[in-house]
Design a binder for these strands. Structure first.
Lengths: 114, 114
DNA sequence: TGTATATTTCGGTAGTTAACGAAATGAAAT
DNA sequence: ATTTCATTTCGTTAACTACCGAAATATACA
């Protein structure tokens, strides 16, 4: 029983992972951009991303030395699709999310990483 | 940020709490019936129930020496209402849940507790 | 080939959480 | 009032998780 259903909610039960999901709903981001947004170590961000990926919420796409992460456009699990749709009205009034949205639009991977 | 949104998902991110929620969607249950269903210590069940109650998923009603727990019929948070509705199609194929449903219909608090 | 950069994996640590039994609380019945 | 029974609270322990820095991997470029 600890397999499928709880994995979904476990993935959503960490504030930083929710911030990542909400940020990715704005646009595609690479690891270093997310690191900049959340102010966490690279390895920690990578860990969070793998949790979200394993649960099915996001997918990754390699682009040279970067790895782009994005919302899963075609989740095989209908629950994932449902949750992703609902996230808009579930979380939008929290201050962190609001300021994150502004920051995301200003993030520039060239300036941050290179 | 660790306040509202993650509390909802944290409450759902434990397999035993999901089992409790699903069982309560069948009918009202007291603590000792849930203890019997989950095969956990009373104190552990009580703990899980308080997490679900604090998050807003369930309410309690005292009935003599028993405390009846039930799905919150009028959640003030629309996310709770949405999640409770969705739970039906989110979780119904897992073996534990299926056998739980059968067990719940056979639970008898008089036989169990007294 | 060697170097630089982005990301992941690994090992370890601090904080959190689920679990228990024992003690405390509360409500009904003798 | 005392006992009984259901539940909650408390104190403790084991398991889990988020986090970090360092090492390993992977990709592009000189």
């Amino acid at each position: 029983m600890n397999t499928q259903s709880t994995a979904l909610f476990k993935a959503l039960s960490d504030p930083n992972r929710l911030r990542i999901l909400k940020a990715l709903q704005t646009r595609v981001l690479c690891v270093c951009e997310i690191r900049e947004l959340l102010q966490l170590a690279n390895s920690t961000v990578s860990q969070h991303l793998s949790v979200l990926r394993d649960a099915g919420f996001i997918i990754e796409e390699k682009d040279g030395k970067w790895v782009n992460y994005m919302i899963n456009p075609k989740p095989s699990d209908p629950r994932i699709a449902s949750i992703l749709l609902s996230l808009d009205f579930w979380i939008n009034d929290e201050n962190t999310i609001i300021t994150d949205k502004k920051k995301v639009s200003l993030l520039d991977r060239i300036r941050i990483c290179c």
